[in-house]
Structures are given as C-alpha cells and as structure tokens.
Amino acid sequence: MYDFTYHKPGSVADAVALLAADPDAKPISGGMTLLPALKHRLNRPTALVDLSGIAELRGVRQEGDALVIGGMTKHYEVATNPLVMASIPALARMAATIGDTQVRNRGTIGGSLANNDPAADYPAAALALRATLITDRRRISADDFFLGMFTTALEADELVVGVSFPIPQKAGYAKLRNPASRYAMAGVFVAKGPGGVGVGVNGAAACSFRQVEMEAALTAAWSVESVAAVKQSPDELNADIHGSAEYRANLVTVMAKRAVADAG
C-alpha cells in the first residue's frame, strides 16, 4: 500500500472541506473494499478521510413513511436493528448475507452504495424500494444514482449522508452466491411499496438495474408465476469464467421467483 495522509474529521462539513481541498483525497467508511484495493496498489489517494468519527452519520430513524439509515451504519447494525427488522425485514435479512460476520462488523451501507460494486447487495434494494440517496448537498433518487460499474452520480467531494427507504407493504431478496468469492452471481430484490412495484437486479451486469418487465408483471399480479414468465435478455449481462450471460439471464428469473416467494 502506498502511504497517505490520514484525517478523521468530526463533522460532515469538515469531511467535505478536506475532500474539496484535495482532489486526490478519498473518503473511507468501513474500508472493506477500499483497503483491499489500496493493498493491491490499484489506487493512490494522497489522503484518506475517515468518516467513522462523524456521529451524525450513524443510526436508523423513521421519517414519516420512510426509514432513513445513516451512511456509516454498519451491515451488522442494519441486520439487527429492530426498526429495520420490523419495517423492512427483507432489508435486514439481506444485510445479514453481505460478506461474512467480520465484513458486516466494519462495512457500511453508505460505503456500499457509494462504491456501487456490481455484485453488491444494497444497490438492488435501493432500486427496488425506490430509495433516495441523501448527500451533504442534495437528494438523488436511486434511479439517477447508479450510473455504471463502480460509478455513481456523486461528485468527488460529495458524501452519502444517508439513504431513505419508503417502507414497503412487502419485499423480498434472493441471490445465488459464487461458491468461492460468495459475491452474488445474480441477486434480485422485489418490493411492493408506495411508489409501486420495484425489481432490482445485482450481480448480473456491470451495474445493478431495474427489471421493468418483471415490475409490470408483478404490478398486474403479484405472484411467483408472474415473474417466472418473464425472460431476462442476456444482452449486456456479465459473462466470465463463473458463468455465461445466458446462465446469468436464467438466474435472474430464478432469483426473482425466490425473491417473490421470500416476500410472501
């Protein structure tokens, strides 16, 4: 790992100021993706701005009909938070399957969303639940946030402060993990919420996306059979040593069926 300067600001404003002053500085939340990347010298930030000292970024609260989860809330905290478990149990169950225990004890929801790993779980949930990303300066709908592989609408000095999930009537998630890496080969999050039916797909393509044909089918009739009838096109899906695009396309339908069953 190349060396860098380390900052641990106590407020969002201070963190943003540090990032704005140095275009080669990077924020670090849990570091579960960033630190392995730095070890491989894939990245050479001049400074790391550690967000873990900012109390306002932690915690879960209900705001009207939505659950707002602070960006630095850890996966373990999301998985075991009584408010999340009661309002969006599928989100808590999903968080409990991210990485392993030790990753969940460090990794954060804001870090995962801002990183936008194609195989990460939260982006599919954010898309399906019609979440709104709250940054230090604006609100961005999930539809406008995830732009491509490891790419989001965030400015270089912009931080995810939290994410607001409208509380759904029902939601479910299923993924098939790669047996070695445990990352999702394909995952599908389904939700029936105040903004309509959402189907988010992760792991299958360069960026998580909404499966609009399945959304239409589930809007017409919420059932396993509805999504079973929808074939995902393999065009633009990932193809690698672990599986072809056609294999992943089939997985999307299979995981969607399981996700609807999970939602009940």
Partner: peptide, 13 residues
Amino acid sequence: GDSVKSCTLLAVQ
C-alpha cells in the same frame, strides 16, 4: 467487542 479482520483495518482506524 466485535470480531474484525485485522489485516483489513488500518492501525489509525
């Protein structure tokens, strides 16, 4: 009190 992987944690953290 939480288990973590000490190879993926900076000492300063």
